[in-house]
């Protein structure tokens, strides 16, 4: 009895081994569900095309091959350029947009800012009403000159009201106003307060919106579709993949009307394993970014909580 009680005390918040086992199994299955599709994609990317043709996608293909990878790296110079584009857009875009969102949110968080309510509503309003595709397109392309350049892939995504709200809430919950008052009393100027007092505390919040932003920039292909048509060297990797995917889908959808022409064109399209190669290339870098950001996000989860 005593031993049992002691054991219990050693493991705080413990549940019975049975329940624990069930939870582990459920979590394990969930994790598996997340990983399996990716493993599957990798397997397909290494499958021989003949195997895909005869037995379809399979975890155990009839034959393995690295042809698709070799083709991708040797025959498609655009892949490397697109890789660079994606990384460039993601790095620059994430840095800029995180910086802008964090500053915007900081101002909204400061109660002594006179137009707080106004700017709060100003950003929030865009979450409810948008200008519509065509007006946005005209403004971006003809007024702002976001046309066939990197800016077209970065600027439209710079300010995200959702991130501003997250960041403002984060400031509110984890940066006590007293801290700013104390800094002011100690003679700290506004910039000093922001960069030396607030910024270090806000790191987890910044990391969260940076990760969200990075995902948005990395995954975006639509802007490229709209604004990058003549100068396709600027296409990011996602746009390249979407294009290949859409090409294949379009041709199979249109084959009823286009007849033989669609079939002839479809024969020129990259193989299925090649498309999977692109998926692998796209997923790997962003998957690598997760652990890096995760440190801050986990830290962020505990920052606001009561300690001790």
């Amino acid at each position: 009895m005593a031993v049992k009680g002691k054991k219990k005390n050693l493991r705080l918040n413990s549940v019975s081994p049975g329940a624990e086992a069930v939870i582990y199994v459920i979590l394990g299955l969930f994790a598996l569900c997340c990983i399996i599709p990716f493993v599957f994609v990798i397997i397909i990317s290494f499958s021989a095309e003949s195997s895909i043709r005869s037995i379809g996608y399979s975890f155990i293909p009839q034959a393995w091959s690295t042809d698709a990878f070799r083709y991708a790296f040797r025959k498609l110079p655009q892949i490397w350029r697109s890789y660079f584009n994606s990384i460039f857009i993601t790095v620059v875009g994430t840095a800029l947009s995180t910086f802008m969102c964090a500053l915007y949110a900081y101002v909204l968080y400061r109660p002594d800012f006179k137009f707080r309510g106004f700017f709060n509503f100003f950003s929030f309003f865009t979450m409810i009403f948008g200008g519509g595709l065509v007006p946005t397109y005209i403004v971006c392309k003809q007024v702002l000159g976001l046309n066939e350049n990197y800016a077209a892939l970065i600027v439209p995504l710079l300010v995200n009201p959702f991130n501003i709200i997250i960041m403002r809430t984060f400031f509110k919950s984890s940066v006590p106003l007293e801290l700013i008052e104390a800094a002011t009393i100690d003679g700290s100027g506004e910039y000093n307060t922001l960069f030396r007092v607030v910024a270090p505390i806000a790191k987890p919040g910044v990391a969260t919106i940076a990760l969200l932003n990075a995902l948005v920039f990395w995954n975006d292909w639509y802007l490229s579709l709209l604004y990058i048509q003549r100068n396709k060297v600027l296409q990011p990797l996602q746009a390249l993949l979407m294009e290949l995917q859409n090409n294949v889908e379009y041709l199979s959808r249109m084959s009823g009307q286009m007849g033989a022409a669609a079939i002839n064109e479809a024969a020129k399209m990259p193989t299925q394993s090649l498309r999977m190669v692109l998926v692998v290339l796209i997923v790997v870098p962003i998957a690598c970014a997760y652990p890096f950001f995760q440190r801050y996000i986990v830290a962020g989860l505990s920052v606001g909580s009561v300690k001790g």
Binding site: I138, Q142, L226, N246, N247, Y250
Partner: peptide, 16 residues
């Protein structure tokens, strides 16, 4: 391309 022509041209035409 086959995949992007429809969306891109429709927007471009509407956007003048």
């Amino acid at each position: 391309t086959w995949g992007d022509f429809d969306t891109a041209t429709v927007t471009a035409l509407a956007g003048g």
